[in-house]
């Protein structure tokens, strides 16, 4: 049995009378890439928000490597090893590309409260940040302001910032959304590399079926906030509930 890194136990959130995520219990293991699918409004991003702490859960528990983090703040969850990239690009727009990544590494190394040293003198942070930028092929743009980058490059930077965090749990929310056909492979190859390391667990919200087919070890299906199916890709995709209820249209798209 592989190690369980992340576990949600009856995780629920209600907004007024609307149940956005409905008692989802699921465990995620080291070395596993789990794709989370479901129609729009099924609660995929809300489920992510509950795990990473942007929204407090109404009911249920979240456990990270056995530790209950249900009440922990967003920053604390991140420091404990939960890393997330966002669906809508969410960067520091007026800072340079390098600075964006360096800030992540600086957080990781606990250097944020160094008041009287020069940021530029922490060369080890810069070196690490550059290494990450090279992995996503953004190193030539390091001095650009983020607001000057193309959408595709901003998405890459979003992924770079997650990689720089070096978390135990990677959460990607549609990492290739809006990327052109020749840009997407860079990101997908990176996710494949991370998966090959087999030490971490990766959660991926994705709509593109070809991406899921090549990357996922397991698929969970959310429908109206509840867990509708869970299993290996072939079984889940072949299952009636997926075919008929709401995956049908998207499958024929591919």
């Amino acid at each position: 049995m592989t190690q369980t890194l992340l576990e949600t136990d009856g995780l629920t959130v209600r907004f007024g009378g609307h149940v956005a995520v409905d008692h989802v219990s699921c465990a995620f293991h080291a070395g596993e890439l789990t794709a989370i699918v479901g129609p729009n409004g099924a609660g995929k991003t809300t489920y992510f928000n509950l795990i990473s702490g942007q929204i407090p859960a109404t009911e249920g528990r979240v456990r990270l490597m056995g530790e209950d983090i249900t009440r922990a703040s967003v920053a604390d969850r991140c420091r404990k090893g939960l890393g997330r990239a966002f669906q809508l690009t969410n960067l520091f727009p007026n800072l340079s590309v390098l600075e964006n990544v360096r800030l992540v590494i600086q957080a990781h190394r606990n250097k944020g409260f160094s008041l009287f040293s020069m940021a530029a003198s922490h060369t080890e942070l810069t070196t690490e940040a550059m290494a990450v930028l090279e992995r996503v092929k953004l190193d030539h743009l390091k001095d650009k302001n983020v607001s000057e980058l193309s959408h595709g490059n901003q998405r890459k930077l979003e992924v770079a910032m997650l990689i720089a965090l070096d978390p135990m749990v990677y959460m990607f929310d549609e990492p290739t959304a809006g990327m052109s056909a020749d840009e997407a492979p860079v990101v997908l190859d990176l996710i494949a590399e991370l998966k090959a390391e087999r030490e971490r667990t990766i959660l991926l919200v994705e709509h593109k079926m070809d991406v899921i087919r090549t990357l996922a070890d397991r698929i969970i299906v959310l429908h109206n906030g509840a867990l509708a199916a869970d299993g290996d890709p072939a079984t889940v995709m072949a299952s009636d509930v997926v075919q008929e209820a709401y995956m049908g249209k998207e499958l024929t798209d591919v």
Partner: peptide
């Protein structure tokens, strides 16, 4: 111009993301 100053700028730019990369804003 210290690491602390950079964090402040990051918070000014996007406090939501600063929190999400592990800074207790």
């Amino acid at each position: 111009n210290s690491p602390f100053g950079r964090v402040l700028q990051a918070i000014r730019e996007n406090d939501f993301r600063a929190e999400a990369i592990g800074y207790r804003v």
